[in-house]
Amino acid sequence: MLSLTDVSVSYDGVPAVRDVGLDLPDGQVLAVLGPSGCGKSTLLRAVAGLEPATGSIAWDGADLSRTPTHKRDFALMFQDGQLFGHLTVARNVGYALRLRRTPDAAARVEELLALVGLEGYADRLPGTLSGGERQRVALARSLAVQPRLLLLDEPLSALDAGLRERLAVDLRRILREAGTTALMVTHDHEEAFTVADRLAVMRAGRVVQQGAIDEVWRAPVDRDTALFLGYARVLEGDAAELVLGRAAPAVAVRRSALVLDDAGRLHGTVVGARATPTQVRLVVDVAGLGEVDAVAPLDRRPALGADVRLGVDGSRLAVVGAAPTGQAV
């Protein structure tokens, strides 16, 4: 179990990570989600022992501040893999096994390559691989000696969108199968939702919210967090009350939270409509709300200027700042 208490890192006096506290139970995957420059990669490097940090980073209660990187038994996987260009795929994957003089390293390498779906790639050089293949090799290399903690630094960000989606699912499966405890940082909430069990949202060096994925998802701690988690708009005050049907300081709504519904509570005028393969995306000027996003099924496409009624899908909105999940700073 990894425990961080009041961890801070600064570069030349400029704080990059401030007073972060996190807990990661064995066997779980925690995603640290935040915009670029929020300090999440620095936090990861501090856990790996690559940045000097204050506060406590401990594993099963034992403080690690005096343990050098190579003795922490954590594997770090970089955004761009950082494969060793002068070694073949098999030698890259078997690197940590050779360091530990593990017997039967060759069999283990084959097993790992099969796990990441790269059988037959053993003798290739990293320079000949595609981006996705490199990341798979990097993953296999990190998993080789079953580290007690796997650190993933934006493992999929360097890949194009389709591949990213597929690899995220693979990554989830592989981590599950190996029973690995992992800490992943990413700026992509879809990736975090796909791979992780728990989520910590980071902004300007601080963890602003953490908890199980659906807890965080259902109750974002503030407006910025909600927007970063993929909510389209945050409505406040009277508007929030109108949508929710009861008093609340703020409500975050997904694009699909408001649905074209003849029995709906809200009245509005359509000011924009655009068809996508699965639904029609509307912009509706609703009395008391202003312009909001809404959706309609593909077979009903209201004309511009039409008066429509909208229903509210309660599962697609979240009350902001309501539940005291995790530390709100």
Binding site: A48, L50, T69, F74, L76, Y95, A96, R100
Partner: peptide, 10 residues
């Protein structure tokens, strides 16, 4: 750094 994280001593 990647090598160190994989357990290689300096």
């Amino acid at each position: 750094e990647a090598a160190a994280a994989l357990g290689a001593s300096p």
